[in-house]
Design a protein around this nucleic acid. Structure first.
Lengths: 205, 205
DNA sequence: CGCTAAATTTTTCGATAAGGAAAATAGAAA
DNA sequence: TTTCTATTTTCCTTATCGAAAAATTTAGCG
């Protein structure tokens, strides 16, 4: 058989073999998949052999018939990214940054493009009055109280008093602020998927 | 599952409007996208208006011309950004789960669909020999040593000795394992973007 | 082993729909 | 208005899709 498409060498995921392996994993025939997906067996054959470029409509029916998400048809057989990054920050050695009421020690900051950012944070604010305005941005946050006692303010909720060992997870889209109520400024381990624009330059993501 | 849909209106992602928004975000015309992707402007117009079901070949060229991953064409317009969630777990009150050498206390586990999962983890392993095989999966991880001393093993790196206050961030695609070397089993705060299949059922994401 | 029957896949070929060049339309600037 | 740009529509070429025929593989049995 001659080659498939006459235009340029279209660099595309070998979707045909992916469909075939998905079908064979389920131990079903072209006919079975045909009735499940509403795509004719002749078309299925051509797709699996790379003899045709299926339409988006057909792709959707295929995914439904195979019981997989549409994007599963495009994931290559072997997992792509095999990154080998590792960073370690020993206690007290991370770069520090003061921003308003928060004092951060950046953990593992030498890694770029992280899925989330860990910050060892010291809370200098002592009351909600210390905040000119509460933070509020896209993403999700979590923190764990390492020492001291804090009060967490978030939109829609009553303020919460928290002690060492307590933790909270919330959507950053709500207004939020945390401050110390213990003798010493409280320390928390802060995890955020997004950081404020001010920190973004420092953290580098 | 009952037999699939035969002919009916194919329920598919509104890919046309997605393409249009991607194009307009870049401030380019149909003509521009045409020359970048190798798809004619007439076809582009029909795709954006939902008047045609593009072939897989065309979809690939479109994604390339827009400079996005193919799957980006299928993600729905509005991210399901959740708004008003908040969870608090007080010290020692989270659900516990033992899995091999690790004993977890799940923090804020009552929230579903989190960007990352925080786990208060007690390390029972005392040497690398205690692991039948090291973990290895997609995603990124971070941990902070709360108490005790640990050794971190990761592929490509020498084992690292870490004490309370130390932390590490690494790609989970590398083989990895952590164990205690202090008198008492060490405790770490573990953050992961993905969790093992075993934990997935428990954590619920 | 051969031979037949059944099951599965591939190919053929006509109907229909996608893709592209160019004309028609809509919109913006002056 | 006119001119220029961007988008939509027209119209024809070409490719996809599907029903049925042909080819291939598999299963069974004397």
């Amino acid at each position: 058989m001659a080659n498939a498409q006459r235009k340029g060498p279209t660099p595309q995921v070998p979707i045909g073999s992916k469909v075939q392996s998905l079908r064979q994993e389920q131990g079903i025939t072209l006919s079975d998949l045909g009735s499940r997906s509403g795509v004719s067996i002749s078309t299925l054959s051509k797709i699996e052999n790379g003899q045709t470029s299926p339409t988006f409509d057909t792709l959707n029916r295929l995914a439904a018939g195979l019981g997989v998400d549409l994007t599963a048809l495009f994931h290559s057989e072997a997992p792509p990214s095999v990154n080998g990054r590792r960073a370690i920050t020993f206690a007290g050695t991370g770069p520090r940054h003061r921003s308003g009421n928060y004092e951060y020690e950046l953990l593992c900051a030498d890694l770029a493009h992280r899925a989330f950012v860990p910050l060892l944070t010291t809370l200098h604010a002592r009351s909600i009055e210390d905040f000119r305005k509460m933070a509020n941005h896209a993403g999700e946050e979590f923190f764990y109280v390492l020492s001291g006692e804090v009060v967490l303010h978030t939109e829609h909720y009553a303020p919460a008093h928290m002690k060492a060992g307590d933790s909270s997870y919330f959507d950053s889209t709500m207004d939020h602020a945390v401050y110390s109520v213990s003798e010493e400024p409280a320390q928390i381990l802060w995890i955020a998927t997004k950081v404020s624009k001010a920190l973004k330059d420092v953290v580098g993501r």
